[in-house]
């Protein structure tokens, strides 16, 4: 990276850097597009504080993501970076940006389809979501497992083109 670092970047500038930090497990999407970065601010002491939220509480990528964010900022010449973790409000796939959804789809992962309803519906069982195949677009798909290669995904199969694919679960 040869790009010149400004010593006192604006918060907007930092956001734009973070928009280039890929998720370690789904590198097609950035940590900003996934809604993991919740806040960027500068403290009076001059330290840059980035607030992140974990996707799933046991997701092994969480610590790596924090390290990658700090690294991306330090690479621009800023030494004093603090990472904060925020639990509430809990991360939801509703925070995945439109751009993130398009990229997921292009990467072969069906994006989470609907707005997550909270609270009252939580104790009710739901049928598996109807999901469109990210390859051929068919809606004739079936759930093969409620969990896929990472906690945030489920395994589906397209009954039209017969390809298996990952579905990013609404959460």
């Amino acid at each position: 990276m040869t790009e010149h670092a400004s010593i006192d970047p604006s918060v907007e500038e930092v956001w734009s850097w973070l928009a280039d930090v890929p998720d370690p497990e789904i590198p097609a999407v950035s940590v900003v597009d996934l809604g993991i970065v919740r806040d960027v601010r500068r403290e009076e002491s001059g330290a840059l504080v980035v607030t992140v939220t974990p996707t799933y509480s046991g997701c092994p990528a969480t610590e790596l993501i924090a390290a990658e964010i700090a690294r991306a900022i330090r690479a621009r010449g800023i030494e004093r970076v603090l990472l904060e973790t925020r639990l509430s409000p809990a991360w939801t796939t509703d925070w995945i940006t439109e751009r993130g959804r398009e990229k997921l789809s292009g990467y072969g992962i069906a994006p989470p389809g609907y707005k997550v309803v909270d609270a009252s519906a939580i104790l009710r069982r739901r049928a598996p979501d109807p999901v469109a195949c990210p390859r051929c677009g068919s809606r004739r798909t079936s759930l093969t497992s409620r969990f896929g290669s990472t906690p945030c995904k489920a395994l589906y199969r397209c009954d039209e083109c017969l390809e298996p694919f990952d579905y990013f679960k609404p959460h």
Binding site: S57, G58, P60, S145, P151
Partner: peptide
């Protein structure tokens, strides 16, 4: 194998919760 993954992923969620 699907349930192997599902069981391990459930365990992972629970470890995360236990940690908190």
């Amino acid at each position: 194998i699907e349930e192997d993954l599902a069981t391990a992923n459930t365990a992972l969620d629970l470890i995360g919760q236990a940690r908190m």
